[in-house]
């Protein structure tokens, strides 16, 4: 026994090193799972407050641009609303009056207070949290396209897994041909993602619009992701190598909307019922 203690004491530096590394690996594994370590992220009070203050300064510099973008989005939405109203009027389509269906999706505006694009696994921090009704798993979108998925929430802040994360796979659809595929980031360029699993018989073209499909449980369907930038088909390959240019510039995120799907629980429950049988 004494010799064991002596041995450990002799190599105490190595054993301390080992203990620290094991703790780190444990933290890393925890964090990679769906809802990871609760405390050690930028949603915790102190870190988020510091980021918030820092973002306040940066916001001031980009105020003009942000304003312009928001007003452009407003104009776009007003035009869309008017078009929708007009089409309903002329076609004499019965409007849906069921409030449950009308309010199926709720949008919550939030400000980005911390954002990274240069790592392999990027995250954003938003200034809204549990108190505003945000829960993990909600979709985050912006005026230009999809942004990510809420990962962890604290009382007043939330951390979002960005689309620019090599672990994130998103189900998408080619708008023109209605074929499905999967979007994944390759860690290299912040402006592009790869579109995988589009089979040979499809004929995608440069410029085709890529939108979210209804198959994923996170995003509402039909949201803009980007446009096809490069089409490549190797001789023996089963699938195309497609590159999508993102419609959202992730370096310039300032305001985003968190999508609250009010019927999601109902859908999940129903689908679970089928799985059990």
């Amino acid at each position: 026994m004494e010799r064991l203690f002596l041995f450990i004491y002799q190599y105490r530096s190595f054993f301390t090193f080992l203990v620290f590394q094991i703790i780190c690996v444990w933290l890393l594994v925890q964090n990679n799972q769906y809802q990871g370590a609760k405390f050690f992220n930028s949603a915790n009070g102190l870190a988020a407050t510091i980021n918030n203050t820092s973002q306040n300064f940066r916001d001031f510099l980009s105020l003009r641009e942000t304003n312009q973008r928001l007003s452009e989005e407003n104009a776009y939405l007003k035009r869309k609303l008017e078009q929708r109203n007009q089409s309903l009027y002329t076609l004499n389509v019965r409007e849906i009056n069921d409030p449950v269906l009308i309010n199926r999706f709720d949008f919550l505006s939030a400000r980005v207070i911390n954002n990274s694009v240069h790592q392999f696994k990027n995250h954003l921090t938003l200034n809204k949290g549990k108190k505003d009704g945000i829960t993990p798993g909600m979709a985050v979108i912006s005026a230009d396209g999809i942004v990510g998925k809420v990962k962890v929430v604290s009382d007043n802040f939330s951390v979002v897994t960005s689309l620019l994360n090599i672990d994130v796979l998103t189900s998408v659809q080619l708008k023109r041909t209605s074929h499905f595929g999967t979007v994944q980031w390759d860690g290299a360029n912040t402006e592009n993602v790869n579109l995988l699993y589009v089979p040979r018989h499809v004929q995608p073209q440069v410029g085709d619009t890529v939108v979210t499909s209804g198959y994923n449980s996170i995003y509402p369907d039909g949201l803009m992701v980007g446009t096809i930038d490069k089409v490549d088909l190797k001789d023996e390959a089963l699938f195309y190598d497609l590159r999508v240019k993102l419609s959202q510039d992730f370096r310039k995120l300032s305001y985003v909307a968190v999508v609250k799907s009010n019927l999601r629980e109902e859908q999940d429950e129903l689908e679970q019922l089928i799985d059990e049988k």
């Binding site: 620290f20 780190c24 933290l27 890393l28 964090n31 930028s42 915790n44």
Partner: peptide
């Protein structure tokens, strides 16, 4: 790590370097 949202990553490499 708290600010980079990469818990354990910088801690791991820093401890490794210091060792």
């Amino acid at each position: 790590d708290i600010f980079y949202d990469s818990v354990g990553l910088h801690a791991m490499s820093s401890v490794f370097m210091v060792y």
